[in-house]
């Protein structure tokens, strides 16, 4: 199997997800199978193919450095579950 339980726990932690022991085992199997399948691509000879740095063929899309109107403070905070003193309020974080 290409994916260990440790890999799953590590990635879950990075994504701030919590899983039970059983779920970790199941995910290791399922995600491992996906990775194994993707691994079949490694069988192809790509030595003569240019590396793909970006999937889009478009380049250099820029905007001018010109100011446009912003949202008002009320509009910006309209969807915030919590706000205080004109700011978004989030659970207390350590610096």
């Amino acid at each position: 199997m290409s994916l260990t339980r440790e890999d799953v726990t590590y990635v879950a932690n990075l994504a701030r997800l919590e899983f039970s022991e059983d779920q970790v085992t199941a995910l290791a199997d399922q995600l491992g199978a996906v990775l194994d399948y993707a691994e079949t691509l490694s069988g192809l000879d790509t030595s003569k193919i240019k590396a793909t740095e970006h999937v889009l063929a478009v380049q250099n899309v820029f905007r001018k450095d010109e100011i446009k109107p912003c949202l008002t403070n009320e509009e910006a905070l309209a969807n915030a579950p919590e706000s205080e003193a004109g700011c978004f309020k989030v659970p207390r974080v350590m610096e």
């Binding site: 205080e84 003193a85 700011c87 978004f88 989030v90 659970p91 207390r92 610096e95």
Partner: peptide, 14 residues
């Protein structure tokens, strides 16, 4: 910018 001024949370200025 995070402002650590609120009693029970952290405030964010975007």
């Amino acid at each position: 910018k995070l402002l650590h001024e609120s009693a029970d949370g952290t405030l964010l200025d975007v």
